[in-house]
Computed example of a mutant assay.
Amino acid sequence: MGLTNNDIFKKLRVAHKLRDEDIIKICALKDFKVTKGEINALFRNENHPKFMPCGDQFLRNFLDGLIIHLRGPMPQKQIKKS
């Protein structure tokens, strides 16, 4: 059995020393709104009644926001005029 999205998200949180507020700001960079309650539900034990599995969309938006957070926004492409 491999890693779940929750496991990947937990490892990224620890590796980058992110707090709940940081995760909310990172998700906001991709216009993805998330609450502290949702974040806490993702990090709970799988046996906990309020556990929430991390979906692909959530992880994708977080990773895209993390890229913007670490590298900055993509520069605009210049259009060549003929």
Rank of each mutant, 00 (worst) to 15 (best):
K33L: 10
I26C: 10
R44S: 13
I24G: 04
I39A: 03
K36Q: 11
I23Q: 00
P75I: 10
C54F: 03
I23H: 00
K33A: 13
L70W: 01
K11I: 14
S82A: 00
T4R: 09
I8K: 08
F51M: 05
N45S: 13
F43K: 03
I26T: 02
R13A: 02
I26G: 07
F43L: 13
K81H: 06
K36V: 04
K25I: 07
E21W: 09
F43I: 04
M1L: 12
K30N: 13
C54N: 08
L18G: 00
E21N: 12
L3N: 13
L66N: 01
D56G: 07
K77S: 09
R71D: 12
F9I: 06
K25G: 01
L66E: 03
N47P: 03
G65D: 07
I39F: 00
L29Q: 11
R60P: 00
L59Q: 00
V34L: 10
L42S: 07
N61K: 09
N40H: 10
T4E: 09
L12T: 01
D64K: 11
D22Y: 06
T35E: 14
L70V: 01
G72R: 02
I79T: 12
Q78G: 05
C27Q: 08
A41S: 15
N47D: 14
C54G: 07
L29K: 14
N47E: 14
K30T: 10
K33T: 13
D7P: 04
E21L: 14
F62N: 04
F43V: 05
F43C: 11
I68R: 11
E46D: 08
S82L: 02
